Amino acid sequence: MRVDLFDFTLPPERIALRPARPRDAAKMLLVPSEGPFGDHGVRDLPRLLTPGDVLVFNDTRVIPAQLEGYRGAARIGATLHKRVDLRRWQAFVRNAKRLKPGDPIVFPAGVEALAEARHDDGSWTLFFPGDEPVEVLLERAGTMPLPPYIAGKRATDEADRSDYQTMFAAKDGAVAAPTAALHFTPELLAALAAAGIGHETLTLHVGAGTFLPVKAEDTDDHAMHAEWGTIDAATADRLNAVRAAGRRVIAVGTTSLRLLESAAGEDKVIRPFEGDTSIFITPGYRFRAIDGLMTNFHLPKSTLFMLVSALMGLDRMQAAYAHAIAAEYRFYSYGDSSLLLP
């Protein structure tokens, strides 16, 4: 499909630079398969779902993967986006033309990395010498890797250390938050449980590639970035039992959805999964593992807007986004939410 079919005009003032406070005070647009859209709040979720439904959250934890340093006198910026092994990370590098293999990059707080190898996509493998875990080094020298549409408008600050982390964050490895779950609080989770709505967790370490623009003119020519994820056998069994009983599995966020779909076969059975996925979901895709999606509002011509258009239909999502813009919903990572029920 032509990428320009997924374009729309978003007024800059609709981009949220801070999250709602409290988190569950955000607005939420209900998008059913047909009929009028519903203007709600995230706190309405318990009554918008059905007892027996199960929400699936991503329990990845965002690491402070944005680094600013120097190679000699040249300023170098690095955004780690995928772990290679215990001491190596693949990174997008700013001012990479000043690097050659073997060059040391000096970051704050005594942290150093070696530019080990350049890849065809322009990224680099960085090697962090020493005995301290890389995660410890990042906590000392790194900052939270806010998306460019936020970081380009304001500086990262201490509030982002908690704001850009979900209540489910448990497993280090993401360099972007699974933002749909940023709206959840212990109080909302308790209200959902009281309404008979369960939840499960899986892990997908979100990469910085999620923010890369689609440069191709046709979706067939776009190469999707890979991200590492895992679903254990017990979780897969419980989710399969939910659907077998005629109840719904609702993915919270496109990251949860992409991993569930990667783990499901043509028979619509979710199986244990561990490894990389580069699944790219566009209109025409037949969903196997989910019955709905809670997600924030996405960028024009992005792979994520293509995904929600695959779930609900392109015309339906263009109409939903036009409604959201007119009703002054807040967009992107720190913005409001939508509940898509095909």
Rank of each mutant, 00 (worst) to 15 (best):
F168H: 09
E112F: 03
P145I: 04
A195F: 06
R154E: 02
A113C: 11
H199K: 15
L126W: 03
P145G: 02
L126D: 08
T166E: 06
F127T: 13
A159L: 08
A170C: 03
D120H: 06
R140G: 05
F168V: 03
P145D: 04
G122D: 03
A115F: 02
G173D: 13
P186V: 04
A180V: 12
T179E: 02
A169E: 04
A115I: 14
G130E: 10
G173V: 07
A195C: 10
A117T: 14
P129I: 13
Y164T: 11
A194Y: 09
A155D: 15
F168P: 03
D131G: 13
T125K: 02
G110M: 07
R140V: 12
G110K: 07
L146I: 13
L114W: 04
L204A: 04
F168G: 11
E158N: 06
F128E: 03
S123P: 09
A169Y: 07
R154D: 13
P147D: 10
A151T: 09
P133L: 11
R118Q: 13
P145H: 11
A169G: 07
L204K: 13
R161L: 11
G142I: 13
D172W: 05
T203F: 08
P178I: 04
T166Q: 13
G152M: 02
A174W: 01
A181G: 15
A113P: 06
L202G: 01
E158F: 08
A113Y: 07
S162G: 00
V134W: 08
M144P: 02
L146N: 01
Y164V: 08
V134P: 12
T143R: 15
D121Y: 07
P148M: 12
A151W: 01
A191V: 01
Y149W: 08
A117S: 11
V134Q: 07
D121F: 10
M144W: 00
D160C: 04
P145T: 00
P148D: 08
D160F: 10
A190R: 13
A177Y: 04
P186F: 02
G173T: 12
F127S: 09
T179F: 04
L204I: 02
A117Y: 08
A193E: 15
G152P: 06
T185S: 08
E200I: 05
P147H: 03
P129C: 14
E135I: 08
W124H: 01
T201M: 10
S123I: 07
T166F: 00
R118N: 08
S123H: 00
W124F: 05
V136K: 12
A169D: 01
L188I: 02
A141G: 08
F168W: 14
G142K: 10
